[in-house]
Write a protein that binds this DNA or RNA. Sequence first.
DNA 1: ATAGGGTTAG
Length: 759
Amino acid sequence: MSHFNFIAKEIRSQNQLKQLHAQLIQNSLHNQDFWVAQLIHLCTRLHAPPRYATRVFYLAPQPDVFVCSNMLKYHSQMGATNEVFALFDQMQEANVKPVAFVYPLLIKSSGKAGIQFHAHLLKRGLNYDKYIQNAVMGFYCKYGAIESARELFDEMPERTIADWNSIISGYWNGGNEVEAQKLFDLMPEKNVITWTAMVSGYAKVNDLESARRYFDKMPEKSTVSWNAMISGYAHNGLAEEAIKLFNEMMSFGLKPDETTWVAVVSSCSMLGDPGLAESLVKRIAEKGTCPNHFVKTALLDMYAKCGNLNMARKIFDGLGECRNLVTWNAMIAAYTRVGDLASAMELFHQMPKKNVISWNSIIAGCSQNGESAMAIELFKEMIASKDLKPDEVTMVSVISACGHLGALELGNWVANYLTENQIRLSISGCNSLIFMYSKCGSMRKARKIFEEMENRDVISYNTLITGFAAYGSGAEALELLSKMKQESMQPDRITYIGILTACSHSGLLEEGKAVFKSIKDPDIDHYACMVDLYSRVGKLDEAKRLIDNMPMHPHAGIYGSLLNASRVHKRIDLGEFTANKLFELEPENSGNYVLLSNIYASAGRWEDADRIRGLMKAGGVAKATGWSWVEHGGKIHRFVVGDHSHKLSDDIYRVLGEMKKKMMVAGYMADKSCVLRDVEEEEKEEMVGTHSEKLAVAFALLISEPGAVIRVVKNLRVCRDCHTAIKIISHLEKREIIVRDNNRFHCFRDGLCSCNDHW
DNA sequence: ATAGGGTTAG
């Protein structure tokens, strides 16, 4: 027996555990209470799967108090509350009198019902066992009832170091740095646990300098202390620091344990460096550490973030019964990161249990992969089930989805949900609200959120500036820039892109030039904005000169502005030049062919126009599919050219027909005669009017209150024909129509559009 | 037997 006892202490992996198990069977020791208790103890230490642990438990014909207690501890560690209490009931039925140490476990497992359990213990007079007292205190700390914990602490006739440590951790738990510090200074005697609690406490409130100060001052350090410091760095995104400290730990000849590896591996995930990942895996193998499921999950995440999805999936599959919520969530996030929503969705539906992070992962995944409507549907599903409360992360994704859709009704509903459910937003949460209102064209509300924020970061400014830029409010954008300077907030490259775009959309040439001059290191995007600005105000030769003199290679976006301006100003020479550059840079973009063809057409050079159209067809260049949508009744109604899929399709076409008739009668089509020349039937159909924009506007006319503002969103640029048509509709129907395309707003009122585009 | 460190989402 002593021989096996020695072996038991050396067991470090589940495989070794199974070997020991086999040996016990050979020696017919496997069903003795002592050994069953030992095996269960090892299951707890090694996080063995529940199926195995349960099998071991049933080996004992009549489990004694130790077998039961160890099993209870196992269940407690696995968070299997039901099993903990079922076993406790069993023990009472079998008259196995629980030893004191079972009670702390029961308190831990009883969750928020622990308070009743405490009463139960008081009744039985068990309250004065020092372990139970400590456990009750720990319970109060865990659920944030720090005052009750303190009451117990103060009433204690004598306090152990463990009691001091518990109460200090309790204060750290609630982020109460001051009180934790006070008690630490008051403590008559401290141990390594006390010091480590201080390190991890400061790390928790993101004060890594103080954490490090305590870490360096510690009279002795355990592996846990090192882990606390390394994880502290990892949690705060300081991956390099974490790895540096880990190397230092190794140079002291200390042995890293699983927790160390978890922190180091997760730091490596942040860096996304596949080479580092590979060397790390090698080091883990060299050290002979057998990765537990924490390490494996961290490795899974690391492989996924370093681009090796196959390896990640292999670990996921290999984890089998050890898969938990975190593993599933990590794998789902891995798929959404590469845009594989189908696989992510499949896993999401397969997972046996979900938590807030599961929902957040899938909602954010949809939101970031262009499936905003799906993100909102999932959110509705989440709150309908009522067993999980959305948090700020959920809301940020949902708010951002509303923004992408331009769905103001939904956005307002979500904002209401925030106040009703008292979800506080941090800076980035408020930023997402600014983004949402900006994208919905509600600049007044966007500004209000901005102004009511207690603290703002550069992203707050950039988001609002970008909003004003899209809305064509150059003056407001410039005002924000000077406000930034007043408040000594440093503008970054995004700020300047926003400001220059704003100048461009408002035709503020001199202001734009001055800002451009003030940028220290303008990059290619700033040049692109300037080319756009010159182009829009009609200074095409200056735009060309800027392109010729810029210190970097121009990209497609730069020529794009100039090509469009060449069409507006009928500059065939520049149009040909820029179009040819663009055919080289992005041969599959149909827009460039269409633009050049239109330049020729407007000059009456039909043969050239046809030649370019032919070139496009020969090159197999397909037009990008455009769609438009309207928000109504909390739903998104989407349309494509010639769409008949909508429920109200017949009515929509009726309204559209009426519009067309009115337009024809009023003679609006006259100036468009050039486009109604000899074209193919299919093309004519498109030009006359079943564009997605027109269908969306017709739908909005059909369902909205008379006189109400119509809001339409288009995924691509609003096309020229539609622009003209919507102008006319706004005049005929006396309606304000706001159309948002991929980068700006067109506000149509009484036959005019707010944008400076010359079609 | 009680107290300190762990993986996932914006």
